[in-house]
């Protein structure tokens, strides 16, 4: 049975001026989570807030989430005290299928840096070939990075100037490479089209304002191409049917 966990916040650090990183204790979630999945976390507001799982430590039974402050709920969660308890549903959603290939390119933008970080961890542990491309607005937003990664900034004050496409263009991937991308819609569209031009499979992670996170309220839908003739699109649930979809199936 799935359940709602009462978890302790073990550690909180600020990665940037407006982004916190929480380490949360929950052996069940740490044990079950796959990259691309998320948790729905109680804050001091009415609804829970969804966050992509950024890292997992199965041995210690902990996982991490990154919280970018965008509103009151995230503001309060980003300043939560260590030792506090929070209610957490998860792991939720489908996640990336990292068994599809031995070679991956991971691309992140904005808060996409978090779920992609978890994918990188898992692929590295599995000994797979993985290239990380991170796109940020400017140097002040950079987090969860390392020297091995290709980093781009819109402002050009760090790494390659431009969008993550400028970073991807430095690569010559082989045909079996799978691209996984989490970021704002225009970015996922650009990355998806870049992959398509190269003949590579690409998966993207969709986001929409969410309530339940478990597929019962139907508020967080995105559009996918319908199989039936004459139907322009189908609404599917980001939280339950996704958040990960093949790029060619979603309508961005």
């Amino acid at each position: 049975m799935n359940q709602e966990y009462t978890c302790k916040v073990l550690k909180r650090v600020m990665l940037t001026s407006d982004t916190a990183y929480l380490t949360i204790g929950c052996a069940d979630i740490a044990g079950k989570a796959v990259p691309g999945q998320f948790v729905n976390v109680s804050c001091f507001r009415f609804l829970k807030r969804p966050f992509g799982i950024a890292s997992v430590d199965k041995v210690n039974g902990t996982f991490c989430i990154g919280i970018k402050i965008v509103g009151e709920g995230t503001k309060e969660l980003a300043s939560i005290e260590e030792g506090s308890t929070i209610n957490v549903l998860g792991p939720l959603g489908n996640g990336f299928d990292l068994g599809l290939s031995d070679s991956f390119i991971l691309v992140s933008g904005g808060t996409g840096v978090f779920p992609v970080n978890f994918a990188y961890e898992v692929l590295r542990q599995a000994g797979k070939d993985v290239t990380m491309v991170q796109g940020f607005r400017d140097k002040s937003q950079i987090c969860l990075t390392c020297d091995d990664y290709i980093v781009t900034t819109d402002s050009g004050d760090y790494g390659i100037k431009g969008t993550c496409i400028a970073g991807l263009d430095t690569l010559s991937p082989d045909k079996n490479t799978v691209v996984c991308c989490v970021g704002p819609v225009p970015m996922m569209k650009a990355v998806g089209n870049w992959a398509k031009d190269k003949g590579l499979r690409c998966y993207v992670s969709m986001e929409q304002r969410m309530a339940c996170g478990i597929g019962i309220c139907l508020v967080c839908v995105c559009k996918v191409r319908a199989e039936e003739e004459g139907i322009p699109f189908k609404h599917v649930r980001c939280c339950k049917d996704g958040p990960v979809f093949p790029f060619e199936e979603v309508i961005l």
């Binding site: 507001r45 009415f46 609804l47 929409q208 304002r209 969410m210 309530a211 309220c217 139907l218 508020v219 967080c220 839908v221």
Partner: peptide, 14 residues
């Protein structure tokens, strides 16, 4: 967008 939160509830427009 199909959901909007309030202090003690939510609006939906599914």
């Amino acid at each position: 967008v199909r959901v909007a939160e309030t202090a003690a509830g939510m609006l939906n427009s599914v």
